[in-house]
């Protein structure tokens, strides 16, 4: 177990608005962290800081090992699906191969090795037959798998997923977590989700982001973390039979 990312008292946000205040977290190479928290609480902002999409106003983000030099290729990223144009004329193969491009070099063709990697990744995610399809023909779940394939084709050390369980059905969600469990043997995973219920049974630790960050090294959701929510959420208890409780809506 070695540290790959260190975030130290970071303040970050957009324009003049500070969203994240004094956030610190260490990420290790075998982590599987679930990030929960209310909308607008700064979950995506935190991801953007780690991805280097925004610079923190204050504080440090340090990378270790091979993330230090080739950071962006060693971090796989699965963005929220609603940020992507579903009608864009591109094939699944081209989407996945784009995960291998790094820096603005002149690449008009991918090598045989790249194409083999794409093939292997498709197979691994279980969508071998989709390679030549246009993305417009895919279902929500298939699309999510394609984006996951793009995120892992470069064999990253850290995989970041921003709400991968929206737009998909329960069956897919199960499959997704199975795949992630398998991937966690090779890489550290950070997953942002609204679905507090199912996530706690898969991830190793849970962090709650609401302007500040509460991070306890366990996957049990504490009362304190729940208090940061003001909306109904699904709660799962760790009994013999897991059951879902809906917390009362206060407003």
């Amino acid at each position: 177990m070695s540290k790959i990312v260190e975030i130290q008292s970071v303040f970050a946000g957009y324009n003049d608005e500070i969203i994240l205040k004094d956030v610190s977290i260490d990420i290790f190479d075998d982590d599987f962290i679930g990030i929960i928290g209310p909308n607008g609480g700064g979950k995506t902002t935190l991801l953007n800081v780690i991805l280097g999409l925004i610079k923190p106003f204050k504080g440090n983000v340090r990378f270790y090992d091979d993330l230090k030099s080739k950071r962006n290729n060693k971090i796989g990223y699965l963005p929220q699906q609603n940020k992507i144009d579903k009608n864009f004329p591109i094939t699944v193969n081209d989407v996945i191969l784009s995960g291998l491009i790094y820096g603005s070099g002149m690449i008009s063709r991918h090598s045989k090795i790249d194409k083999q990697k794409a093939k292997d990744t498709l197979k691994r995610i279980g969508i071998s037959d989709l390679g030549k399809h246009a993305i417009g023909e895919l279902s929500g779940g298939q699309m999510q798998k394609v984006l996951l394939a793009r995120a892992i084709i470069s064999s990253p050390r850290l995989l970041i997923l921003d709400e991968p369980n929206t737009f998909v059905d329960n069956q897919f969600e199960g499959e997704l977590y199975e795949i992630l469990n398998e991937l966690n043997k090779e890489m550290s995973i950070i997953i942002v989700t609204h679905d507090v219920g199912t996530i706690s049974s898969y991830v190793k630790t849970i962090a709650c982001v609401n302007r500040t960050l509460h991070y306890h090294k366990s996957n049990v959701i504490t009362e304190e973390q729940l208090a940061s929510y003001n909306c109904p959420i699904k709660l799962i208890t760790h009994g013999e039979i897991p059951h879902t409780v809906l917390k009362k809506h206060n407003h």
């Binding site: 962006n72 864009f88 989407v95 784009s98 690449i107």
Partner: peptide
């Protein structure tokens, strides 16, 4: 377009992702 086809395609499809891959 011949030299930078992949990058143009990549940026057009998903700008933010392209940024995370160190593309200008």
């Amino acid at each position: 377009f011949v030299l930078f086809y992949r990058i143009i395609l990549f940026i057009s499809y998903d700008q933010e992702y392209a940024k995370t891959h160190n593309i200008s």
